[in-house]
Design a protein around this nucleic acid. Structure first.
Length: 466
RNA sequence: GGCCUCAUCGUCUAACGGUAAGGACACCGCUCUUUCAAGGCGGCAAUGGCGGUUCGAUUCCGCCUGGGGCCA
């Protein structure tokens, strides 16, 4: 059997959207599963809206996620001759015709249709021009577009995800495939490229489902084999509206900047809108490839749930070794902390690891290591009134210099000794002590915390109460 | 408005036409514990509606309703 060839074909008109990532990933999984080829094609025929920045964002986003393609990137803007070549074929076959209608004329027709409550369809006025009339108009320098000659009939195809789909050709009018500036319209360049790139499976978002109608007609006119189509239900936001900035992060850079791991994102994208028989949730890439099948994709639109992504992300973080976490988290470590030695940073990260949901949390979780806490005066007053605590602190300050090495188990035994002598419970002093040390009531375990803060900071911060 | 499409807990989903409708996230409670988190245990919560087909519908069919997409 011939090798499967799939493609991911984004328009570079913005950052790489998480929905696009899902499409890319599903194409990637299919290619891997079937031992096929994934082509990356940048659809930048819209010169006004396409930006260099966006192209870079797409490419670097995919690379960051490790969604590797086998061919490309191809840029449609560099392939204009190709579209003209295919256009000429269609002209010869009389599958298309030039249309000289002015925009104002068309607008007038649209208005009329609207007034009569009828859907607008092009009148086909230019379809019946004689060759002489055409040559005449062209030689007079009149601008024209090429329209596709839609014949009556219907288009029927079996969508790999949605099932059988039927479109009546009479809902279409003679649509434009080449603009008056000789640039191809999306549906045309897309088909030409898919033909040229020998794409066997077109897997894309559901927003392209109705385009498929026109595209199949073009394939037929071109006398080319029609690929398989599969249309992915669109991911939606919490309110079931199109997923947008309003729902939180949507572009892949944002996820990267917040501190999501590529593994977690891909795992999440795999889970959503996909049916898995056993109750497994965590998948390696290889397992995803193994498990993947287009038939397991749900037909209904999944809602993107940031909470579940966060949970997966925190799961992946918890299961990182200290070394791995250090490497992945390095750019998220606040600058003031980076000067600490590597061993210490490793330990700090290990301690806060179960509290990290996204790597961006590291900043808040470590702030007291490099910044003097700001205390609430009322809290300090309460602590001062805690006789047992003050009692304990006085003793602790006295012996703190004797603790050598300054290391958690030794700190623990010294503290426990004091507590035992004074008959105080650890419970009674833990929270006030934590507050003095960090300015918070949440932190890693006390003894390791003291070790990591170091002797000087510890002394300085507890002295404030005396 | 036209065409296409979808429908199980709040969310992602499981269930040869026969289940007490299962799991996960979120939420709540308990537990562990020097705090938070993580962990363990438990709880809440769904087949959109109406008709068929069938001994029996989440499951098959039709209609309605609702959502989404494309075009206008």
């Amino acid at each position: 059997m011939e090798k499967i060839r799939v493609r991911f074909a984004p328009s570079p008109t913005g950052s790489l959207h998480i929905g696009g990532v899902r499409t890319a990933f599903i194409n990637y999984l299919l290619a891997k599963k079937e031992n096929g080829i994934l082509v990356l094609r940048i659809e930048d025929t819209d010169k006004v809206r396409s930006t260099e920045e966006s192209k870079n964002a797409i490419i670097s986003g995919l690379k960051w996620l490790n969604i590797n393609w086998d061919e490309g990137p191809y840029f449609q803007s560099e392939r204009s001759e190709l579209y003209i070549k295919y256009l000429n074929y269609l002209i010869e076959k009389e599958a298309v015709y030039p249309c000289f209608c002015k925009k104002e004329e068309i607008d007038k027709e649209k208005e009329l249709a609207k007034k009569n409550g009828k859907p607008y369809k092009y009148s086909q006025r230019c379809k019946y021009l004689s060759d002489k009339e055409r040559i005449d108009k062209i030689s007079k320098g009149e601008e024209f577009v090429y329209r596709f000659n839609v014949e009556p009939g219907l288009v029927r195809f079996n969508d790999l995800i949605k099932g059988e789909i039927i479109f009546e050709n009479n809902i279409l009018d003679d649509f434009i495939i080449i603009r008056n500036d000789k640039t191809p319209v999306y549906n045309f360049s897309c088909v030409v490229d898919d033909v040229e790139m020998r794409i066997t499976h077109v897997i894309r978002g559901e927003d392209h489902l109705s385009n498929t109608h026109k595209q199949i007609l073009i394939y037929k006119a071109l006398n080319k084999e029609i690929p398989y189509f599969g249309h992915l239900p669109l991911m939606l936001g919490k309110d079931k509206e199109k997923l947008s900035k309003r729902h939180g992060s949507v572009s892949i850079e944002e996820f990267e900047n917040e501190g999501f791991l590529p593994e977690a994102i891909l795992n999440y994208l795999f889970l959503i809108g996909f049916s898995i028989k056993d109750n497994k949730e965590i998948f390696t890439i290889d397992e995803m490839i193994e498990e993947f099948s287009l038939s397991k994709i749900s037909k209904s639109s999944p809602i993107f749930d940031h909470d579940k992504l966060k949970w997966l992300n925190s799961y992946y973080i918890r299961n990182l070794s200290d070394e791995e976490l250090f490497n992945k988290a390095f750019s998220f470590i606040p600058n003031d902390l980076k000067s600490e030695d590597r061993d210490k940073l490793l330990k700090i990260l290990r301690e806060i690891k179960p509290n990290i949901k996204v790597l961006g949390d590291i900043k808040d979780l470590t702030i007291y290591f490099y910044k003097q806490p700001e205390y609430n005066q009322q809290e300090l007053k309460n602590i001062k009134n805690n006789i047992n605590f003050i009692n304990f602190i006085n003793d602790f300050i006295d012996i703190i210099d004797d603790i050598e090495p300054f290391e958690s188990s030794l700190i623990e035994s010294h503290i426990n000794k004091i507590l035992k002598e004074k008959n105080i419970l650890l419970k009674e002093i833990a929270q006030p002590l934590r507050y003095l040390l960090t300015g918070k009531y949440v932190s890693p375990g006390l003894f390791i915390l003291i070790e990591l803060l170091g002797k000087e900071k510890t002394k300085k911060r507890i002295s404030i109460i005396l």
